[in-house]
Design a protein around this nucleic acid. Sequence first.
DNA 1: CCCGATTCCTGTAGGC
DNA 2: TGCCTACAGGAATCGG
Length: 271
Amino acid sequence: MPELPEVETTLRGIAPWVCGQRITSIVVRQRQLRYPVPRTLAATLDGTRIESVTRRAKYLLLHTQRGTLILHLGMSGSLRVLDAEVPVQKHDHIDIVLDNGKCLRLRDPRRFGALLWTSADPARHRLLRDLGPEPLSAAFSGEYLCEHARGRRVAVKTYIMDSRIVVGIGNIYANEALFLAGIRPQRAAGRVSLQRYQQLASAIKAVLNQAIAEGGTTLRDFTASDGRPGYFRIRLNVYDRAGEPCPNCGEPISQMRLGQRSTFYCKRCQR
DNA sequence: CCCGATTCCTGTAGGC
DNA sequence: TGCCTACAGGAATCGG
């Protein structure tokens, strides 16, 4: 499931192949994703050049002369650069065919992904306008987290997974960052000290940066079939390790549900 | 505003 | 071996 580091890796992988290319055609085999793919896409984009590719939260933005394609990988989506004639497989829903003979192919078995279009400023789009800061930006800090948490009783794990507070932190990295910061996931967000929020912000930046760095090691092979996500390469301390010994103290890792999400933590190391 | 629950979807794993 | 159920997850949306 692509989290922010996987999306960043995808961005770096596709950018050299698509920037400056013109779109020859768009093939939509499955229109029903998280939102219906607009029917007008092919007509709007035919012949348009892709100027640049950027990322906001887990959205990839393909900026063209006429507007911006907004693409989300959901939880099972992958985007690869292939020769246009490579046969499609199951769940290959969309091809964006380029005039260099390549195509951007979206595969998404669970169809939680999205492909939308805006001719206006993408930052003002409904899906993007209320997003919080990027976790790797200077605007994201322990002070920021502490400030916005005042009076809030929601669990701190749910709080940091709220994209209005900070973007790009999915379940895996939320669990890992809270472990590194020594904070119990179910603690009320408003009852975490500034000092611990500073540790948490550092931990979030550290796990994301590490995963991006590991993801970068797969970039050379990106046009092949396996862009292996970064988190398969980093050592996960607690996620999906219920009952296994805590890497710090040996206590068995606990599992609980928080906001309908599996939550893993060490009862001794996280308070 | 705040918060918890529900919803979309399909592949996989576990129980019997 | 196969059927059935539960679960995984991002994030919008709904109801209290």
